[in-house]
Write a protein that binds this DNA or RNA. Structure first.
Lengths: 344, 344
DNA sequence: CTGTTAGCGCCTTCAT
DNA sequence: ATGAAGGCGCTAACAG
C-alpha cells in the first residue's frame, strides 16, 4: 500500500505538498498539483484513514448504536440513518448492543474509542443513570433516541409512547369495547412500561376496572404473541378486543385467534403497534399506530452532526404517534351505549 | 482525554511499561503493574484506538457491507454476524451499499481504509468483474456472500438459488399445477435471474410451455407484489398457482387475490421464498423456501477471520435451500394425472 | 524487568 | 509555492 511518502518521492515534492493537494489546504502551483495527482494515480494511492484521523483528531463519521439488528424496525432506522448521514458527507458506522445494557454501553465506548465525531444511541435497556454517566464520561457528544432524559433533554429524540397507546385503547373503547386484553412488549423496558401505562390510563379514564387476568407480558416476537393469546383463550379470559403492543405479536395472536375459530374483527378486534410494513397487507388489514421513525432518526442524526460541528442545538418536542385505522377493529358490544358508569 | 504518557508519568514509569501492562506483552513486576493500573484508573485512561491500530496495522475488527439495511433478511444477517464476530473477540463494523453498485464498492473501500482485518461483502448489484477488481485492489482479504465467483471460489459463500426455485416450482407441479404464474425479484440481479431460471427449468423439465404472460417482473416489495398480482388478474392470465420470488411479494399478492375473491389455497396456491418470520403466522401459513442465512453468515465470518489470521481456508460447497411446506398450496387441476406428455 | 529510540502515515506550523 | 521538522498516541525492537 503506497504511502504519502511514496507519492511525494514519485512526484518529486515533499510530503507536505502532497498533503496540501490532498486536503486542498494552502496554495499549490497547478503544475505540481497535476504531478501529484498523477503520482497518486499511478501508485493507486489511498490515504490511510487512521493516520489521518489520528492527526486530525476527527474521523468524519458518526456512530450509531442500536439495541439489536433484528426486526424491520431497526432496519428501517438504519436505512434512513445511513442516508441522512451521507447527505452530510459523513460516514455512518453502526454497532448493536446485543439486546443487553452492558453491550449497549460497550458499543458506545467502542465507537468513542474510534473517535466518531458524535454518537447516536438507541437504547432499550440502559438505565437513565447509566446513560447519563456514560455520556458524561466520553468526549464526543451523544444524542439519545427513545428516552426522555430529564438532565439532558436537548440530547433526546423520543416518542410519546404512552400517549399513543392511550389513543389506541381509547379508540377501542370508543368503538364499544370494554373488555380489552393486552399483550405487552418487554415490561422491564421504558417502552414496555409506557405502552402498558397508556392502556391502563385509557381504561381508567373510562371507568373500566383493571383486570390483571387480561394482560399478558410478552417479549417482542410473533411466537410469544401466539402463545400468550392462546393462554388468554385457554384461561377463558373474556375480551372483545385485543391490544397487542407491537405488530409482530399481533400477528402471532391473530393466528391463535384463527385457530380457535375466532374471526377478526367480527369476533375479536385486534390492534397493533408500530405499523410494520406487513400490517397493511394482512387480511384483514391491521389497525395499528404509526411511529415516525424515519423522522426521528433523521432528526437525531441532524442533531448529532450539529453537535459534532459545535453548532448550537435546540431541544426538540417529542414526536407523536398516529393511529392507522384499517380493518381489524369493528364495533364492540357496548357500541352506541354512551353510558360509562362503572360496572362494579 | 488522558494519554499513555500521562499514565506513565503518574505511575512513574515509561510509556513502554504502560504499553506492556496494557497488552500483557513482556514481563512486568507485579508491583509496578499495580501502580500502572492505579494510574490508569485515576486518570480514567482509555487507549486511543486509532493510534493503536496505526501502530499495529490491524484494527481487530472485521467489516461487513450489505446492499441495504432494509428488510428482515439483512437484520437477521447482521444480528448473527455481530454475534459470531464477537465470539472471535473482534468487532464488527457494518455499512450499507444504498442498494447501488457504486455505493457498495465505496462501502468496501471505506472499510478497507479503516484497516479492517477482513471484509465480508454481501452484494446484490456489483458485477462479477467489478468485484474481482475490487478485491484485488485492496490489501485485506474479502469474502463474498451470495455470489459464485469462478476466479475466487474459495472466497465465496453462496446459496443454490436456482435449484431452490426449481424445487419449489417442481413441487407445485407435483401437486398437479401446470398453470403457474411467477412474480420475480429484481431481474437485473443474479438472484433474480437465478430464481426465474429455476422456475423456467422446472416447467421445461415437465414439458410445460413457457408463457411470458404469466411472469411479472417485480422489485422486492409487498406493494409491487400486490400490484403485479392485480395485473395478472386483470389480464386474465390463467393460473392455479403463483410462485412469488420472495415472501414479501407473496404477501402483497395474497392481498390482491383476496380482494378478487380468490381463496388461498382453494382457488389459487401460493408459494413464497425466504421463509420470512411472518410466513409461519400468516393465514394460511405460507409455503416457502428456507434460506440458511444464519449458517451462511456464520460461515462467512469464520472464513473472514481465518483469512485475517493468515490461516488456510478451504472452499465451501454451496448452501442449499429447503422447502417449508405449510398451508398455502393445495392440489391443482392436474393432480394424479401422471401423464406429462407435452401439451402442444 | 524496564527505559530509550524509532517508527506507523499523516498534518501543520514555521521558515525559505 | 514548497520543504523541514515535530507531533498525534501507541507499539516494538534493542539495550541494559
Amino acid at each position: 500500500m503506497a504511502t504519502m511518502l511514496d507519492v511525494s518521492l514519485r512526484a518529486g515534492v515533499s510530503k507536505a505538498t502532497v498533503s496540501r493537494v490532498l486536503n486542498g489546504t494552502g496554495q499549490v502551483k497547478e503544475s505540481t498539483r497535476k504531478q501529484v495527482y498523477k503520482a497518486m494515480e499511478e501508485l493507486g494511492y489511498r490515504p490511510n484513514f487512521l493516520a489521518r484521523s489520528l492527526a486530525n483528531r476527527t474521523s468524519n463519521s458518526i456512530g450509531l448504536v442500536v439495541s439489536t439488528f433484528d426486526g424491520f424496525y431497526f432496519g428501517r432506522l438504519l436505512q434512513q440513518a445511513s442516508r441522512q448521514t451521507e447527505t452530510h458527507g459523513k460516514q455512518l458506522i453502526v454497532t448493536d448492543g446485543h439486546d443487553t445494557p452492558e453491550r449497549e454501553e460497550q458499543a458506545v465506548q467502542m465507537l468513542a474509542d474510534r473517535q466518531c465525531d458524535a454518537i447516536v444511541l438507541y437504547t432499550r435497556f440502559m438505565s437513565e443513570k447509566a446513560i447519563m454517566k456514560l455520556i458524561n464520561s466520553i468526549d464526543m457528544p451523544v444524542v439519545v433516541i427513545n428516552r426522555d432524559l430529564s438532565q439532558a433533554r436537548d440530547r433526546c429524540v423520543f416518542f410519546e409512547q404512552q400517549d399513543a397507546a392511550f389513543q389506541a385503547v381509547e379508540y377501542l373503547i370508543s368503538q364499544g369495547h370494554r373488555d380489552i386484553a393486552c399483550i405487552t412488549v418487554p415490561i422491564h423496558t421504558p417502552t414496555g412500561k409506557a405502552r402498558l401505562q397508556g392502556y391502563r390510563s385509557a381504561l381508567e379514564k373510562h371507568g373500566i376496572a383493571w383486570d390483571p387476568d387480561k394482560v399478558k407480558y410478552g417479549d417482542s416476537g410473533m411466537t410469544r404473541g401466539y402463545e400468550l393469546c392462546l393462554q388468554l383463550l385457554e384461561e377463558k379470559a373474556t375480551f372483545s378486543a385485543l391490544f397487542a403492543c407491537n405488530d409482530d405479536m399481533a400477528l402471532g395472536a391473530s393466528k391463535a385467534l384463527h385457530q380457535a375459530g375466532l374471526r377478526i374483527p367480527q369476533d375479536i378486534s385486534l390492534f397493533g403497534f408500530d405499523d410494520a410494513p406487513s400490517a397493511k397487507w394482512l387480511e384483514p388489514g391491521l389497525s395499528t399506530v404509526y411511529l415516525p421513525i424515519d423522522n426521528m432518526i433523521t432528526t437525531a442524526i441532524d442533531q448529532a452532526i450539529k453537535l459534532a460541528n459545535d453548532l448550537p442545538i435546540e431541544t426538540l418536542p417529542p414526536f407523536t404517534g398516529k393511529l392507522v385505522l384499517r380493518e381489524s377493529v369493528t364495533t364492540g358490544p357496548f357500541y352506541q351505549n354512551s353510558s360509562s358508569a362503572s360496572s362494579s
